[in-house]
Write a protein that binds this DNA or RNA. Sequence first.
DNA 1: ATACCTATCGTAGCTGATACGCTAGGTATC
DNA 2: GATACCTAGCGTATCAGCTACGATAGGTAT
Lengths: 249, 249
Amino acid sequence: MKLAPSRKNASVVPGDPSVPVPDGRSSRWTEHRTERRRELIKTARRAIDALGPGASMEDIAATADTSKSVYYRYFGDKTGLQRAVAEVVLGQMQQKVLDAAKAASGPREGFHSMVLAYLQMAQTSPNVYAFVTRVGIAESSASDDGAHDTLAHFLAAVTAMISRPVRAFLLSPERSAGPDDAAPEYWPTAAIGMVRSAGEQWLATPPGPGRPTEEQLARQITGWLFDGIGPGEPPALPSTTRRQEKDMP
Amino acid sequence: MKLAPSRKNASVVPGDPSVPVPDGRSSRWTEHRTERRRELIKTARRAIDALGPGASMEDIAATADTSKSVYYRYFGDKTGLQRAVAEVVLGQMQQKVLDAAKAASGPREGFHSMVLAYLQMAQTSPNVYAFVTRVGIAESSASDDGAHDTLAHFLAAVTAMISRPVRAFLLSPERSAGPDDAAPEYWPTAAIGMVRSAGEQWLATPPGPGRPTEEQLARQITGWLFDGIGPGEPPALPSTTRRQEKDMP
DNA sequence: ATACCTATCGTAGCTGATACGCTAGGTATC
DNA sequence: GATACCTAGCGTATCAGCTACGATAGGTAT
């Protein structure tokens, strides 16, 4: 009773490849896959947190009590794992930012909450932060194109996250007075670069007395971004616009 | 610049380092060493410029018509070469900055010239820039300390370069009115991070119509750093009630 | 109920790059 | 001529990233 040899299996089904044949042998694994994927990401995060951002795939897999091939099957390559972890971390950070942004009174407060969320995230797991923000893990040796293809995936995602509100703010009517905006599309990246650099120096600072709190640093960075450090710029600006929030508890 | 003796060789004098017997056989080589070292750095720079920031030591040595071991002797490891190249690049940039700073009218113009020099340097050789800016080439896999030990060497040097004038400016009498300065020691790093991020996005932008010139971008960044983007910041800003609802992946 | 198929798992091995030691041989000074 | 110094090339150790193959447990069709 051999069945027809031409009709091998349902993968290249001639009639309808879409719905009406829910093969249990495949569908059985979908739930398992998503669950396992989540678990793998979670374990990878723990492993990186414990082993450092340079943890190898083997180390990560060993921490998960499995082997490298599982990770490679689920994430393709190491950059895929990086991206997956970054997605989760970004989602949590985004959640925090959204919650805080609801209570924000203005763009300044909104941005302050973002910076704060960023710093808190980095502080919570510096190793995971370093892993996620790393530029091309696999591309570093193979690419000879010159400039980095883009920023790291996580930073690119953060940039995309803040780009829209920033753009809206930069183009708001009351803000068009200045002669700025020669290149406003660079501001989100620039701002994140500032946050990142300050945050990483802050992370590297031992938690001694001189180290500011997350709140203080976030407030400071927000001030730099919104007010700058130049006090009035003597030639063109009289003394009208001194800086505002002198006393802000 | 001190030329460090490589690491294990007989560069340390055997008997007494202070005895006034200048052995000609030793002193003759010092000049040769410095000259050769300079040549090796120069050739490495050309090789990286041609091959990309991920060029291997063998590629670099082949471009210099020599072998890897020469580079390893002179620079210890790849990070040492990175540091040496960074030193030269930084020196040239510093020269340019100093020349420009002499003609600067104030801190703003001085900083503008610095940013401009940075951008021009990066633009001149994007590959060398990427090589020099890269964080730990050898530490990435061996170190599990967590945070990067410091910033990249080049960026740390640039930070050190601008830290002193910045500190002097931040503590200048007319600027001490604001309640800022909760963490002024983070500003140089933060500012360089902004310059770096904006510059790298700028480098990655194809030189089409929308791309600003170095001058424009430098002017823009200087404006962001000195004036910020929030002009006045009226306490109640109604136009940003609900922005940033984002799609979560 | 039996033979077949699907998707996963994990062991083991491959590829390529990097760091670096070792030895032979050349060259200029004393 | 003797000696200190350098160079060159080969070879090795290691390790990250990645892949191929056999084995197994669970669904499916006859």
